[in-house]
Design a protein around this nucleic acid. Structure first.
Lengths: 163, 163
DNA sequence: GATAGATATTTTAAGTGTCAAGTATTAGTA
DNA sequence: TACTAATACTTGACACTTAAAATATCTATC
């Protein structure tokens, strides 16, 4: 009693095939994340005249007083090396970070927050947390937990199935 | 018996305050969507020598045989007008779409898939659906449903609370 | 020590994205 | 009809993004 094509059991019960369901879920996930991202970008621009990538770099640095190498930054932010070069260059212009060539290994450089950078970031971070909290307000604590659990599961699935 | 700061009931039971929980959830959501997006971009590039924005434009057009205005495209893709201009220009170079000035209103133009565009898209769409399905494989149908339900709820929350 | 290969980063070229300003056209109105 | 305002879109300036090539430096080996 094989079913046609690649469809499975659930088809015959009127459910969409898994691939269609996955696709719809992916589009929903993407749209949620795009909307939130757009909001955050707009607020960072309006309230702090800065951008999300700049904020992300500051956030990564804030967690490490001893600074981060360029390559650690790009790995932690999941972006390319060349990308970080540009963003950091603009942060240096604004005196929010410093870039020091490592004397043990002169190929590599360490990026650190300046005092001004730390102060600017702490104001932004508080506002950022507030914006997210506001947007997520209608999710109860247990709904957040459940969503977190399912997304963790999803990430495992993604990582277990590199396409 | 007021709690300190802006924390509420749930704090005292050892849970994180809602804002921290929201923030963690947001970062998880973002990372899932970034990973999937990166995978899709890489596969579109490797298998079809194209990009996600191009694919998105073709997908929007494929649903409407009569074509879409530039402004309908930009609204449907949630990007700016100027952005669509560039992507469409490159699709025209590849003869995947046409752009026709409307004779009733010569300010506006309609973009349509060519036969070549339709054929190219249908191959890409099938592959795209397969990639997503593969990455989401470990989510059961009911987990997909639950995730979809929670994300819909989240989107309502976001839209009800414009920051 | 010289030289080959590995590593850390920057540079380059092309695409994507925004906003603001500009252009062309249409619609409304005195 | 002429003038104003609104609309649809493009252009320009800048930021972000990537992959690939280039640069600088270090490491290992002969």
């Amino acid at each position: 009693m094989a079913s046609a094509g690649s469809s499975t059991f659930s088809d015959r019960l009127g459910g969409a095939p898994h691939s269609k369901q996955s696709l719809r879920l992916w589009l929903k996930l993407l749209s949620c994340s795009m909307i939130v991202e757009k909001r955050l970008r707009a607020r960072l621009d309006a309230d702090f005249e800065t951008t999300l990538p700049r904020f992300d770099v500051l956030a990564a640095l804030e967690r490490r007083a001893q600074g981060l190498k360029m390559s650690e930054l790009s790995e932690s932010l999941m972006v390319s090396n060349g990308n970080v070069t540009g963003v950091v260059a603009r942060l240096i212009e604004d005196a929010l970070v410093t870039r020091t060539v490592d004397q043990e290994d002169r190929r590599s450089a360490t990026v650190r927050l300046t005092r001004k950078g730390r102060e600017a970031f702490s104001a932004m971070a508080a506002a950022h947390e507030g914006w997210v909290d506001e947007m997520f307000t209608d999710l109860s604590g247990s709904q957040c937990d459940e969503l977190m659990r399912l997304l963790t599961h999803l990430r495992h699935s993604i990582e277990a199935h590199p396409v």
